[in-house]
Every structure is written in structure tokens, then in C-alpha cells.
Design a protein around this nucleic acid. Structure first.
Lengths: 338, 338
DNA sequence: AGGATTGTTGCATACGTTTTCATCGACGCT
DNA sequence: AGCGTCGATGAAAACGTATGCAACAATCCT
């Protein structure tokens, strides 16, 4: 019995009530038992569902969240998106997905686009946004929370893992493992995430009196990282351990070492990654890595964003979530390490 | 100079024209050079962008496409989503992403939700939808195109690779390689995609006079597929080749065989997958597989969908795109094979 | 019993845009 | 000069919903 476009007015007519009554029933406002029953019955017969765009117009709340993401080839992001989407759906929100290459101007354009959809909030996954844009968002009262990336001066909320601490843990693990020549294929140093991990890693090495490691920026790119690993291994004094700035690159490094250079992992060199993407647990890699707790990061992201939406006066917050080192087979394990 | 909410009326006032004039400038209708200039100037100063929801209300076109996807752990889908999103963005559309577990009722609920956003069209990636829902969509004039999945009676447009033909090609390749005991870890037989690949595969084997292969449904699930492989190999006459219904499972099979059962690939058994996800090319797997041409499938999907949106009277079409067998190192290569 | 309170309901307005319609001025033609 | 044509313009209606307001009924209290 469902026809093309059925509006609250149609339902009202069939139920013999006013359009306002229909609206009240579906928006949860008060109504008598009998009207509710009549409206529900008519609505079911007609297959009526309220038009969310019209509702958004009047309330000013679209219940749409913009999600801006650069690339999806790093498995960490699909996973995060899946969880984010589910968590938001449970709370009555939905995700408008935007792919933004990595050019800053592209991101600005694309986010301006987003705002014309009257999104209630924006989540950025590993993208940097201009301060100009930040201002426009706060001027329009659109909360932004950055997922897995911080931005220093921005004053925006951000959810990351405890990257500095994570970097330290990796260093301590490798030192305890008796590695003498530790190298580092860093996460992109243009990102807070990459910088922080590197910083913690270097600090812990320095405090232990170890000499500063040889280090190359892997740009979060497989090819760049693999090439970096090759250069490290072909240097005069090849490392016996490499900390790679994320799993996505670490897997590329392992591939290059094992299958193209004949280097044994962990026999000749220990590899430690960062993220603990599902593939890290696959037998072909069995990668020791510092876990970013996706679920908790997603929860924190959703909680923070919705809180800021509900209370615009709320301050911004920077959440850091600690993750454990997941010990597998790609790095020598110190004697007695738990 | 940008304040909270700036509407076309604000721009009109500042430019000294009517609100209709502003609308005409931004919707591309005709206007004199001078008005255009005045409006543009005022709009820039105020930071005005038309409200797409209001526009959608009146035009009936939201320029939003609903994308329904079950899971993202199979790398094929993140990739497809990335491309889909980009292609649609270029055409002025954006994606509302919906995660739908695999329960049919969940999918119906979630798609009904989608429709309240007045989406202009829907793309389903590997999910089946009830005929009830199909009817409601066509009643509301919302085109649906199924990506990487067909549905027999539905009369919906679908874009797939040439799965039957693909299955045949794999069979021919394995036969030419001189494999005598060929087995099959099938894609989920509840999906057209899985069934078609299997059907082509079996048909080619039968035509060549080979005995029907032992076969287990891998359900598109890593654990299930790995277990299936174990059972096949531990049978009385273990296979010397396995065709696995997609790469996602094939990688799991290789892991299980190589690292947990000590079986050599391709020494003891050849493995062929389907999809050619990026990981298939990684040295750790080097998987021979039948490529699904993502880019062309995505192009066909958005072309078909947008065509149906622009011309609702247009019929539905089922597009099949042929992909090549990508020969790598996981399966024995027939002598002289190009 | 009468007034105060509470809960329900319908009317009308608003949200920000597109689009029809009529008006108007300018222009070209005979 | 007068008439028809055409492009530009503003006024106003629509899209489908939420909500303030006033009217009204019912209930409660003293």
C-alpha cells in the first residue's frame, strides 16, 4: 500500500487528526494514548517515515556526522570506520563519508562541502586541517574531533593513543632484548602521531644511554618504508632491530627484508610495529607491535563529539589512550619478559 | 567576517538584490553580469554557501547516495569505497555510509533508515536485500545498484565481474598446470558471486573430464576457510591445488598451510584466489588470482546509478566485467603459459 | 460547586531554498 | 513611433516538518 511520497499530512488525514499531532507522535512529544494509536495505525498502513531533511531544517540538527579520511589502504582505518559507523548508528547518527587526498587545499574544499550539508559534527581521521577552517567550524558551531591525529595550536579535541609512551615502551622492549644497533623507520614526521612515537622512542633510548638510532621517515607509505629499510640494512653497520612507525609500513619492511633481501626476521633483525592491525596477527607476519585500542578510541571519539554537540559551551579535550605492547614473533623477546 | 548562520537573504540584503537573485546565481540560472558580481562579492564577504538540505527539500534531490556495506575486513571493500566516494564526489554526490551486519532484518531496518534521508540512490556492496525492500525502493523511485553481488529475481541493476567466466579460467589454468587432484574452498554459496565462480569452475572441470573436486564452503570467512583447507589436506587423498573463492580467504588458507601445517605453497599445493586485492601482490603471499577490475566496476556502478537517477524510466542492467588471471607464485605455472 | 491546574489538540508560523509568475525595461523591427 | 520579443528581476508559493500559542476539556482541590 505504499505510494511514492507520503507526508505527515497524509497520515494526519487518514488518522483524522492534525498534522501537528502526527509530528508529535513521531518526535516523542506528548500525545494521548488514542491519538498515538490512530497515528501509528495510519502511518503503518501508508508506510510513513518522517523526512529527516525536513526535520533537520526546522530543528537545525541533521544527525549527520561528516567523516573525513585520507586513504583507506592502511587497514587501521577501515576498521575504525566500521566501528565508528556502528557506534554512531546506535546513537541515531549517520556518517557522511568524504575522501580527501592529502593536499591541504583539497581538504579545505572538501570540508567546506561537508558543511553545506549542515553536519552536526566532523570527525577527521588522520588529516590535518587549516587553522582558517578550524575557525570557520567553531564560528558555525560545528564540533570537530580529530581521530588518531592531534594538532598543536588548533584547540580542537583529539583522540589518540599514548604515542609518546608507546614509543618509549618499544624502545625499552628492544633495549631489554639486548639489541645493540637500533634503527627507526619513522611515521610521517609531518603528523603529530608520527612525531610523538618517534619522540618517545628517542627519549627512552637516550635515557638508557644508547647512541641515537639511524632514522628515516617512512611517510606512512609502503614503498618509502621498504626503501628506507633497504638503505638501513645496506649501510656500513646494519641494525639488529628496527622500530617502524606503523604496522602498514612494518609489513612492507618485513616483506622487503625477507623476500627481496634474504634477511631473516627476527633472526638477523627484530621488527616492531605500531597499531596492531588484524594482519599483524596473521602467521605470515606475526608482528610484535604496540596496540592502538581501536574500540576504546572509537568510543572516546563518539563520546567526545556527541558531548560537544549537545553542549556547545563544552571545552575541547585531548584524550590519550594507552595501549599494550603485543609480543609476537617478529622481534627477539627479552629473557623473562612477561 | 563569518558569522554563525548566513542565509541567502543576508547575502541579498548586502548585495541590494532580492533573495531570488541570490538563489539564481548559485543555482546557475540566468542573471545579469552585474547582479552576479554583486552577489558573488557579498557572498564571499559573508562566507555564504547554500544550504544543501534546504535545496534538497525543494528540488527533491539530495545529492546523497546511500552506501550499504556489511563488513570492511575484506580489503576489497575499503578500496572500492575509496574509489566510489571519489567518483561520486567528482559528480557532485556524497556518500552516506551504513554498516549493516549480515542479518537480513538488520539490513532492511538500516536501509529504511537510509531512505528517511531522502537519498537519491543506493549502492549495496555485497549485501542481499529483501524483495519487500526492493519494492519499496522502486515505489519511492530510489534506484538501487548492487555492487559485486547480483540477485536473481530482484530486477535490480548489478555490477559484478564475470564470475562464471572467471571460475572457468581458474579451472583451465589449474588443469593446464597438470594438477590431478583439484579442490575448492568456495565463496559463500548464499551469494551469487560465490555460486557463479563455483559454477564456472565446476563446469570447466567437468568439460575437461576431470573428476568433480572436493569442495567446502568457506563462507567468505578466514577461520572457516582455514579450517576447510585443513580438512581437505588431511583427507585420504590431499589435493595438489585449491581454488579459493576470494583472496581474503585464500590468504588465510596460505597462512594455515604454510605456517601451521608445514605444507609448501606452491610446492605441495597450488593456491589460486579471486579479487586481486593489493595484499595478493605482497611478497609474503604472491598470490595467483583472478583480478576483479575495481576501477572499471566502480565506474560502471556510478554510471549506472546516476543514469537511473537522471532517467527514472530507464531499465535496469546487469553489467559483468571481465578480469584477467594474474599469474604470480602461489600456483604452478603451466609450461609455455603466457 | 467553582476556580485552578494539567494535559491535548489544532492553527499558524518558521526553517532556507528553488521556481513559477508577472512585471518591467530595453531592444529590434516595420 | 508603436508593437512584439526577450532577458532580468522581485514577490510569493512551495517542500515537509517542529513548535509556540491559544483554545479547550478534564481533573483536582478546597
Amino acid at each position: 500500500m505504499s505510494d511514492a511520497k507520503v507526508t505527515s499530512l497524509d497520515v494526519a488525514r487518514m488518522a483524522g487528526v492534525s498534522q501537528s499531532a502526527v509530528s508529535r507522535v513521531f518526535s516523542g512529544a506528548s500525545a494521548s494514548k488514542t491519538t498515538i494509536a490512530k497515528v501509528r495505525a495510519a502511518a503503518d498502513r501508508l508506510g510513513y517515515r518522517p523526512n529527516r531533511l525536513a526535520r533537520a531544517m526546522i530543528t537545525g540538527k541533521s544527525r549527520i556526522i561528516g567523516l573525513v579520511v585520507a586513504y583507506l589502504d592502511n587497514q587501521f582505518y577501515p576498521l575504525a570506520i566500521e566501528r565508528l559507523s556502528q557506534a554512531l548508528q546506535e546513537r541515531g547518527y549517520h556518517i557522511l563519508l568524504i575522501m580527501a587526498g592529502n593536499s591541504p587545499e583539497g581538504i579545505d574544499a572538501v570540508m567546506a562541502d561537508l558543511m553545506t550539508y549542515q553536519v552536526d559534527g566532523i570527525i577527521t581521521a588522520s588529516v590535518a586541517i587549516s587553522s582558517d577552517l578550524t575557525e570557520r567550524c567553531s564560528a558555525m558551531g560545528i564540533p570537530v574531533v580529530m581521530f588518531n591525529r592531534g594538532q598543536d595550536g588548533s584547540g580542537l579535541s583529539s583522540i589518540t593513543s599514548a604515542n609518546v609512551e608507546g614509543g618509549r615502551k618499544v624502545a625499552e622492549f628492544l633495549l631489554a632484548g639486548g639489541h645493540g644497533r637500533i634503527a627507526h623507520v619513522a611515521g610521517w614526521q609531518g603528523s603529530s602521531t608520527g612525531r610523538d612515537r618517534t619522540q618517545g622512542f628517542l627519549a627512552a633510548l637516550a635515557e638508557a644511554g644508547a647512541s641515537p638510532p639511524e632514522m628515516i621517515d617512512g611517510m606512512y607509505d609502503r614503498a618509502t618504508a621498504a626503501e628506507a629499510a633497504r638503505r638501513l640494512m645496506e649501510g656500513p653497520q646494519p641494525p639488529d632491530a628496527i622500530f617502524v612507525g606503523n604496522d602498514h609500513m612494518a609489513l612492507a619492511v618485513m616483506d622487503r627484508l625477507r623476500h627481496e633481501m634474504g634477511v631473516s626476521v627476527p633472526g638477523d633483525v627484530s621488527i616492531v610495529g605500531y597499531d596492531d592491525v588484524p594482519m599483524a596477527a596473521w602467521p605470515a607476519y606475526d608482528l610484535t607491535t604496540l596496540r592502538q585500542p581501536v574500540n576504546r578510541m572509537v568510543e572516546a571519539t563518539v563520546d567526545t563529539l556527541l558531548a560537544e554537540i549537545e553542549d556547545p559551551a563544552r571545552g575541547h579535550e585531548k584524550v590519550e589512550i594507552t595501549g599494550p605492547l603485543i609480543i609476537r614473533g617478529s622481534a627477539r623477546v627479552p629473557r623473562g619478559w612477561t
